[in-house]
Write a protein that binds this DNA or RNA. Structure first.
Lengths: 157, 157
DNA sequence: AGATACTTGACTATTTTAGTCGGGTTTATA
DNA sequence: TATAAACCCGACTAAAATAGTCAAGTATCT
């Protein structure tokens, strides 16, 4: 039963944090790319086969990565993708940003003079989400593609 | 174009990490409850009004919290909910678990003898997701409801 | 010329989210 | 004892997001 008097309830439909297959695929594909990125470009077909990701979906993901200048494309036969920066300089944050995975936990705008949820005060848990956000982003900011490749090589030995 | 020879591609539809309004509402509501949980039970109606969360939705959320014994219900007039444990003993992990917010980053089963994605080896980024999972859960395991209430009181002063 | 590979954009089945809605039952109090 | 406040329960749903698919290109190497 919803009977609210003198109070307009405005639903908040927005998801406030996500991390899905798209982001995971992007990272997996880039680690693969970084590993095989010696001289020749790596084709999406190869990545698709090795990593078990739909080729069509990979194309979408790489279009985004290209726009954000994380990879460069080489067209034609023997073409593919190469990294556009050193693996050390590509942080997880950059990758997730590129493919639209947000780690934004607070939907209240900092610029606005109002508090959260249209109220005049900060919501009770505002600081928590702020903290959480930086906790996670801190992790992503530190981790580079290079770390992942090295981590992977170590485990192989 | 998807032309894969000798390779059966099995899509993974599963989201691997989420944290949405339901979890946020649960935490907000419980902080509210903990603050006003002195002698009398707190009604969902009051929480709804104070926190701007749909009453119907709150009822769903509290049903789950009750099943997990985080809150206790008091029926009848002047009824409501009370905490079933000390605020110090209720960790964020418990809350998120209760309302089905998973922080499970790896979909590969640890028990299975196979690796990830049905392959024989771990996927390239397996360790990353493992690390991320414990990084986040570590944060949630430490934070208790009591911390949040105190944090809130401090900021008021 | 032909094959390989990237490029673009539209389309879609399925699932999830964030609720709503309608009917209960329980209990304090007037 | 009537009533209203509160919890209880299950079904339903609009909208959005996800994880793709599909079609029709263009560029480049051999």
């Amino acid at each position: 039963m919803t009977i609210l008097v003198g109070f307009i309830y405005t639903p908040v439909k927005q998801r406030f944090m996500k991390l899905t297959s798209k982001g995971r695929y992007a990272v997996m594909a880039l680690v693969d790319l970084a590993k095989f990125n010696n001289i020749n470009p790596v084709s999406l077909r190869d990545i698709s086969l090795r990593q078990g990701i739909s080729l069509d979906y990979l194309e979408q993901i790489f279009a985004k990565l290209r726009k954000k200048e994380i990879v460069q494309s080489v067209r034609g036969t023997q073409g593919g993708y190469i990294l556009n920066k050193k693996a050390k300089e590509i942080k997880l944050t950059n990758i997730f940003e590129a493919v639209d995975e947000k780690v934004k936990t607070v939907q209240c705008k900092k610029e606005s003079k109002k508090g959260c949820n249209g109220k005049l005060v900060k919501c009770l848990t505002h600081n928590l989400w702020d903290e959480l956000e930086s906790h996670i982003n801190n992790f992503f900011d530190k981790k580079s593609l290079d770390d992942l490749v090295k981590d992977n090589e170590e485990k192989r030995v």
